[in-house]
Design a protein around this nucleic acid. Structure first.
Length: 266
DNA sequence: AATGGGACCTGCGCGC
DNA sequence: TGCGCGCAGGTCCCAT
């Protein structure tokens, strides 16, 4: 569930505490999450490196290091970064020069850590579509042309537009009043405009509220994000729509649970 | 080429 | 009570 707003929240918090810290030790409790290079090299190359910058690209978190390498962290479904951490609770912990640990925790072990020379050339990065804040309405409108895919699937397609996942796709479409199954190319210009506006507004508000803690996501401090209380549809199956009181429906679309209001979303 | 489903994982909640 | 099953969803990979 960490999507763009959650990863952005973690990035902002990380920048305040880890910049110019040196990684003095790496604790590997579960090597499974280290995808690249070998565990041995991963540890060896990280020890002694100083964190020079923290970046986010879509849902990927990037820690740039003084040794010209970057530590790329994908939280996937249940990954967490916690600071100050506790290595007895983590999959991987990084001991910093100030004596504190930065933990990577991950209940389901689907998260991925990579130490690479050039994160920009990672296949995953190369294939990402633009992030929502990087495009104009004109460009967005053009991107939707000829796309017969249901709009929700398109919003979640990282090669189309990057950073939006299942939760925010549902919330954005509710706010735009658009049914998740609508074919993208059949949306009216007016609807595309509202969709674009609500996409940016929803992500912006979610960042302002430090993300949505519905399952595993927490901020770097371990505190929950506050945006879940503003959710209109996600996780609200059978509960009354907050606008029209019609029960919120849940369908499966592209293999994902999809929540919407059958009356408000056409 | 675009789409669909399974795999990767674990823990939770449900029904019997 | 306890067990087994389905489900949660980001991304990759393979099949159609």
């Amino acid at each position: 569930m960490p999507e763009l707003p959650e990863v952005e929240t973690i990035k902002n918090a990380l920048k305040k505490v880890v910049l110019s810290q040196k990684i003095v030790d790496v604790v590997v409790n579960n090597p499974k999450v280290i995808k690249e290079p070998s565990v041995k090299e991963f540890v060896k190359d990280l020890e002694g490196a100083t964190i020079t910058d923290v970046l986010r690209k879509a849902k990927l978190l990037i820690l740039e290091l003084s040794n010209a390498k970057s530590l790329c962290i994908h939280l996937k479904l249940t990954g967490q970064l916690i600071y100050p951490g506790n290595p007895s609770l983590s999959r991987i912990s990084f001991k910093l020069s100030n004596g504190n640990f930065l933990d990577f925790r991950d209940q389901r072990l689907l998260g991925e850590l990579r130490l690479v020379k050039d994160w920009r050339s990672l296949k995953f990065i190369q294939e990402l579509g633009p992030q929502p804040f990087e495009i104009t309405f004109g460009e967005f409108k053009k991107m939707l042309e000829n796309k017969k895919t249901p709009i929700k699937i398109l919003l979640m397609d990282q090669t189309f537009i990057s950073g939006i996942g299942n939760l925010y796709a549902a919330e954005i479409l509710f706010r735009a009043g658009i049914h998740p199954k609508r074919a993208a190319y059949l949306l009216l210009d007016k609807e595309k405009e509202v969709l674009f506006k609500e996409m940016l507004a929803t992500l912006k508000e979610a960042i302002a509220h430090k993300g949505s803690s519905v399952d595993q996501y927490v901020q770097l401090s371990g505190e929950p994000g506050e945006y879940a209380k503003y959710h209109k549809v996600y996780g609200r199956e059978n509960l009354p729509c907050l606008v029209c009181k019609t029960p919120i429906k849940r369908i499966s679309l592209g293999g994902r649970g999809t929540y919407f209001c059958p009356k408000c979303q056409k």
